[in-house]
C-alpha cells in the first residue's frame, strides 16, 4: 500500500486528458442532458426550443411511475433478462467445454456456434417473426395454432429468441476462460487419477467461475437494454406481455412525443442497469487484485 502511495506522485495524470475529454463528451454531457430533459415539460409543442421548455420538477418521474406502465415494463424486462441469463449460461459453458479439446471439424462447429451472435438483431428479429407467425414454421412443426407474437406466449417467444441470439456470448467468454487454464493442472489431475468428471467439477468449473460470472453480467445487461429485437419481433404498440423498458421509452419519445417522461424513464433504466453494473465492476476489480 505504501509503495503504491509513494508511486502515485509520479503518475502522469495529464495523459488521461484525451480519454477524459472523450468521456465527458460521450458520456457525461449526454447524461447531464438526459437529467435536464427529465426535469422539463418537453413535448411536440416545446421541443423545437427545448432549452426554454417549462421546468417540470419531478413531475415526469412521478408521472412515469403513476400514469405509465413503467413498473410493469421494469418487471417484464427484469423477468425475461433473468430467465434468458439463467438459460444461456449452462448452454454457453457446455458448448465451450465441448469445443475446447481438438477434434475433427472443431473449427466449423465453433464458427457455426457464432452465427446467432454475429447476425444483427434486426435480422434475427425478422427471421423469427416469420417463423413465429400464426401460419409460420413454428406452429407447423408443433402442429398447433398458438399465438406467439402477442399474448402470454409472446413473453416466452422473446425469451427463446433472445436466448438463441445471446448464448454465444457466454460461450465465447467461457471458451476464453477455458483456454487460460494452465494445461499443467489437467496433467497433474490426470496423474492423480482424476477422470473427466472430476476434472470438470474440481478444476474447470471453479476456474471458470470468474469469466462466466462476468459473461452472465454482460449478457444480463445486454438483455435488459435490448431494443431492436423486441421492437422488430412485436412492433409498436407492444403487446403488454412484452412491453420491455427500452421499447416503452422509445414509444414515449418517438410516438407520444413526451420527451421529458421518456428521459425520466431512461434515468430509471440507468439506475436499474447500475445495480448489476456495480456488481460487474466489483467483479472486474476482484479479478485483478
Amino acid at each position: 500500500m505504501s509503495q503504491a502511495t509513494g508511486r502515485r506522485g509520479r503518475i502522469p495524470w495529464w495523459m488521461l486528458v484525451p480519454g477524459g475529454l472523450l468521456m465527458i463528451v460521450v458520456i457525461v454531457v449526454p447524461l447531464l442532458a438526459a437529467v435536464q430533459i427529465s426535469l422539463l415539460d418537453l413535448d411536440q409543442y416545446t421541443f423545437r426550443e427545448w432549452l426554454s421548455a417549462p421546468f417540470a420538477g419531478l413531475a415526469n418521474y412521478t408521472g412515469a411511475l403513476r400514469d405509465s406502465s413503467l413498473l410493469h415494463a421494469v418487471w417484464v424486462s427484469l423477468g425475461y433478462s433473468v430467465i434468458v441469463t439463467v438459460v444461456t449460461v449452462p448452454i454457453g459453458v457446455a458448448a465451450a467445454v465441448a469445443t475446447h479439446n481438438a477434434f475433427r471439424g472443431r473449427g466449423l462447429v465453433r464458427s457455426v456456434f457464432l452465427i446467432p451472435y454475429v447476425l444483427p438483431a434486426f435480422v434475427v428479429g425478422t427471421i423469427w417473426r416469420i417463423i413465429l407467425q400464426p401460419q409460420g414454421i413454428a406452429n407447423q412443426l408443433l402442429h398447433g395454432d398458438g399465438l406467439w407474437l402477442n399474448g402470454p406466449r409472446s413473453f416466452w417467444a422473446l425469451v427463446l429468441v433472445q436466448a438463441w441470439s445471446s448464448w454465444p456470448l457466454i460461450y465465447l467468454l467461457a471458451l476464453a476462460g477455458l483456454q487460460s487454464i494452465d494445461p499443467l493442472l489437467h496433467e497433474a489431475a490426470a496423474l492423480d487419477g482424476a477422470g473427466w468428471w472430476a476434472k470438470l467439477r474440481r478444476i474447470v468449473l471453479p476456474l471458470l467461475r470468474g469469466p462466466v460470472a462476468l459473461a452472465a453480467v454482460i449478457a444480463f445487461l445486454h438483455d435488459l437494454n435490448a431494443f431492436t429485437l423486441p421492437f422488430v419481433l412485436f412492433g409498436v404498440p407492444a403487446p403488454r406481455d412484452v412491453e420491455v423498458l427500452p421499447v416503452l421509452t422509445y414509444v414515449e419519445s418517438f410516438q407520444n412525443f413526451r420527451f421529458g417522461v421518456s428521459a425520466a424513464m431512461a434515468i430509471f433504466s440507468l439506475i436499474l442497469v447500475l445495480v448489476p453494473l456495480v456488481g460487474y465492476l466489483r467483479a472486474v476489480r476482484l479479478e485483478k487484485p
Binding site: V26, A33, A263, V273
Partner: peptide, 15 residues
C-alpha cells in the same frame, strides 16, 4: 444501452 444512445443523440443535437 438505449438510454445512453438516446441521450447521446440528444446531446449531439444540442451541439
Amino acid at each position: 444501452m438505449i438510454a445512453r444512445r438516446g441521450i447521446a443523440v440528444l446531446a449531439g443535437a444540442v451541439l
